[in-house]
Design a protein around this nucleic acid. Structure first.
Length: 584
RNA sequence: GCGUCCGUAGCUCAGCUGGAUAGAGCGCCGGACUUCGAAUCCGUAGGCCGCAGGUUCGAGUCCUGCCGGGCGCACCA
C-alpha cells in the first residue's frame, strides 16, 4: 500500500505543477514526499485521499476547485482519481493489488510481516528479573509478555536479539525466607510436601512476615544472616544454594508454561559487586565526588535530577552501582547496539539516572540504552498489595483460566472435535492472558479481569483463536470436497465485496505495522490489527459463502482470501504469543 | 513541593506524522441458525474528547495555565 501511496504522491505532485500559476513556487513549497496522503473515512470514497487545503493559498483557488482540476490530470493504470469536495480520492485497481498481496503472504507464510527495518541491529533485552524469594505474580506476566513480544517484533524486523534475565538472588529479602526455613523448615522439601518449589520458598517468606509481626528481632536476624552470607559462611551458602535452586527451578516451570524463554541468565550474586571499580575510575576522572563519610556521589542537577549516591560509605554496592557494572560486563559479553530494560514504571527515574551516568562515563553504547516501562496491573477489586495478600499468583491464574476454558469447551460440547481437551484449554488460557496483557499500550495502567480475558466474545484472545479455527475448518472442508471445484481457476476480478478488499488492504499494511510496533515497542498495535482483521472476516463470512458457491472459480478465489488471512493471523499470533488452534 | 505519565460513551479502551459525520469491546434493549463452526453476526440507545485560553484554513491530536488521578523524587530493589 505504501508503494501505491508513493506512486500517487508523485502523480499528484506532477499534476499540481501543471495547473500552478507559478510552477517554480510549487516546487519550492512542496516535494512529492511532503504532499499529505490520507485514508478516506469511508472506504466507499476510495483508498487514498489527498486533501487540497494546503494548496489553496498558493493556487489562489478553493480546495474543491483544485481537486476538480486535478481529476483529469491524474491518469494512471493503477487506479483513478475522483474529486470529492476539497479532497482528491484515489480508487486503486483491485485485482493487481490482490495478486501482489496474496502472493507475498503465501510466499512468506507465518513469517509474513517480516521486514528489514532493523536489519543487523544487535539488541539485548532484559526482562522478567524476578526475586528468588517467591513465585511469579501477575506483574511478572505482563513483564514477560512484553519482553517476549518485543523480542519477536525486533526479530521480525531483522534485528539480532539476546533475551536476558537477571535473577535477583541476593539481599536481605532472600535471607528472610531462608531464616524462616531454618526456623520452621525441619528439613522439609518441595518434594516431601508436594508443593511447586518456588511456592515452597514463597511460603517461608510469608512465614517470616508473620513471625516478624510479633518479633521485632526478626529483621535484625535477617540482616545478620545477610552478613553471614556475604562473609561466605558455608552453612548459610549451602542453604542459600538449595533454596535458590528451588525458586529458580519453579520459575522456569512457569516460564515453560507461559512460553517464555531466555538466551542467557545473569545472577545478581555474580554481578552485584561489579560497578564499584567503574565508579572509582569515574571518581578519578573527576566525574563524581566523595563526601565526608566516604560515600561517592554524582551531581545530576544539570540534567534535571538530583544529587545521587553511587557507592555507600562502607564501599558496598547499591542498585545503581550494580546496574552500571552489569551494563559494562554485558557490553563486553555480547557487544550490543542497544540494551533495553523492561520494568515497571516505578523505575523510570532510576533508569534515567543510570543512562545519564553511563553517558558521563563515556561509553559509546550509552546513547543506545532504552527503557521500556509499563504501567501497573490492577485487579477489578483494586490494587494488588502484597501486604494484604491480594497479589495474583501467576501459576494460580493460569490454572484458573485453564479450568474456565475446559468448562467452556464442555458447555459447547466440543470435546469430540478436539483431540486433547486439556492441551487446547491451556492454549486458550495462554492466548487469553497474553492477548489481554498486550492489548494496551505498555505505559498504561491496566485492570486485568480474568473473566473478561477468557471470554470468547469481544476483543479477546479466544475470539481471535476461534476466528483462526473457523478458517482452518473451512480449509478442511475444502479438502474433503476438493474435486467439486476442479474446473475453477483463481480470478481476482471475482473479489468484488468491500470486506474482501478491506482485508487485502490490511494485509498490505501489515509489514509496515510490524516495523512501527517494533520501533515503538508497542504490541497493542498488533493486537488491534488482528482484532480488526478477525472482525472484518466474521462480518464477511456471515453474509458470504466461501465453499457454497456454484461458480468453482469464485470458491477457489475466495479460498485464497481465507488462506491469506489464516497466514496473517498465524504470523500475528506468533508475535503476541497467542497459540493458533486448528480446532477448539 | 518538584519530576513524569494519564484524563475520550455507564465500564474498559482505539483514534497513525493536526484534516471529511469521534470509533471498538463489555454491559443494556431488540433481532438473525433446514446452509461452510451462533464460542458468531446485525441493529437501537449512549459523547460540551477533564476545564479555560492560544497556534492554524482546520485541534481529541500541537502550546500554555488550571482541575483530578497513577507513579517516582532512599547510602531499598
Amino acid at each position: 500500500m505504501e508503494k501505491y501511496r508513493k506512486m500517487w504522491k508523485e502523480i499528484v505532485f506532477q499534476a499540481l505543477g501543471k495547473i500552478a500559476p507559478d510552477t517554480a513556487a510549487v516546487r519550492a513549497s512542496f516535494t512529492p514526499d511532503s504532499i499529505p496522503a490520507e485514508t478516506p473515512p469511508d472506504p466507499a470514497l476510495g483508498d487514498i485521499a489527498f486533501p487540497m487545503f494546503p494548496f489553496a493559498k498558493l493556487f489562489k483557488a478553493a480546495p474543491a476547485r483544485i481537486a476538480g482540476l486535478l481529476e483529469s490530470l491524474t491518469i494512471s493504470p493503477t487506479g483513478r482519481a475522483r474529486a470529492a469536495g476539497p479532497y482528491l480520492n484515489v480508487t486503486l485497481d483491485r485485482p493487481a493489488v490482490f495478486r501482489e498481496v496474496f502472493g507475498r503472504v503465501f510466499a512468506e507464510g507465518d513469517a509474513y510481516g517480516a521486514n528489514g527495518s532493523r536489519a543487523g541491529e544487535r539488541v539485548m533485552l532484559e526482562f522478567s528479573s524476578p526475586n528468588t524469594n517467591k513465585p511469579l505474580h501477575l506483574g511478572h506476566l505482563r513483564n514477560d509478555a512484553l519482553g517476549e513480544c518485543a523480542a519477536s517484533l525486533l526479530k521480525r524486523c531483522g534485528a539480532e536479539v539476546l533475551k536476558v534475565n537477571l535473577i535477583n538472588d541476593r539481599g536481605v529479602h532472600i535471607c528472610k525466607s531462608m531464616l524462616a526455613y531454618k526456623k520452621y523448615g525441619n528439613d522439609r522439601t518441595p518434594e516431601s510436601e508436594g508443593v511447586k518449589s518456588d511456592h515452597f520458598v514463597g511460603d517461608y517468606y510469608v512465614k517470616f512476615a508473620q513471625w516478624a509481626k510479633d518479633d521485632p528481632d526478626a529483621d535484625n536476624q535477617a540482616r545478620e544472616l545477610l552478613k553471614a552470607w556475604e562473609a561466605g559462611d558455608p552453612e548459610t551458602i549451602a542453604l542459600w544454594e538449595k533454596m535458590n535452586r528451588w525458586a529458580v527451578e519453579g520459575h522456569k516451570r512457569t516460564y515453560e508454561a507461559t512460553g517464555v524463554s531466555f538466551d542467557r541468565y545473569y545472577f545478581e550474586h555474580e554481578t552485584y559487586t561489579a560497578g564499584r571499580e567503574v565508579i572509582l575510575q569515574g571518581l578519578k576522572k573527576g566525574l563524581f565526588y566523595r563526601k565526608e563519610d566516604n560515600s561517592v556521589w554524582v551531581d545530576l542537577t544539570a540534567d534535571g535530577l538530583d544529587e545521587k549516591v553511587l557507592l555507600r560509605g562502607d564501599g558496598t554496592s547499591l542498585y545503581v552501582t550494580q546496574d552500571i557494572g552489569t551494563a559494562v560486563v554485558r557490553a563486553e559479553d555480547w557487544p550490543f547496539d542497544r540494551l533495553v530494560f523492561v520494568t515497571g514504571n516505578e523505575q523510570i527515574y532510576h533508569f534515567r539516572m543510570l543512562f545519564i551516568v553511563l553517558r558521563k562515563l563515556g561509553y559509546p553504547w550509552a546513547e543506545k540504552m532504552n527503557h521500556l516501562p509499563y504501567g501497573m496491573v490492577n485487579l477489578p477489586e483494586g490494587k494488588m498489595k502484597s501486604r494484604e495478600g491480594t497479589v495474583v499468583d501467576a501459576d494460580d491464574l493460569l490454572a484458573e483460566l485453564t479450568a474456565d476454558a475446559v468448562e467452556e469447551i464442555r458447555a459447547r460440547e466440543r470435546e469430540g472435535e478436539i483431540e486433547d481437551v486439556s492441551a487446547a484449554a491451556r492454549k486458550i488460557a495462554l492466548g487469553a492472558m497474553n492477548y489481554f496483557l498486550l492489548a494496551f499500550a505498555p505505559h498504561k495502567d491496566i485492570v486485568f479481569d480474568p473473566k473478561e480475558s477468557i471470554s470468547f466474545n469481544g476483543d479477546t484472545g479466544p475470539y481471535l483463536q476461534y476466528s483462526g479455527a473457523r478458517l482452518s475448518s473451512i480449509l478442511r472442508k475444502y479438502e474433503e470436497r476438493k474435486e467439486r471445484y476442479e474446473k475453477g481457476a483463481v480470478d481476482y476480478l471475482l473479489l468484488k465485496e468491500s470486506d474482501e478488499w478491506e482485508l487485502a488492504k490490511r494485509f498490505a499494511e501489515f509489514p509496515a505495522l510490524v516495523a512501527k510496533a517494533a520501533a515503538d515497542l508497542d504490541p497493542s498495535l498488533i493486537t488491534s490489527f488482528l482484532y480488526d482483521c478477525a472482525k472484518l472476516f466474521a462480518h464477511y463470512y456471515h453474509d458470504h459463502q466461501v465453499l457454497g458457491n456454484d461458480d468453482p472459480s469464485l470458491v477457489l478465489t475466495r479460498l485464497d482470501l481465507v488462506r491469506a488471512l489464516r497466514e496473517v493471523l498465524r504470523s500475528g499470533f506468533l508475535i503476541i504469543g497467542v497459540p493458533f488452534l486448528d480446532a477448539m
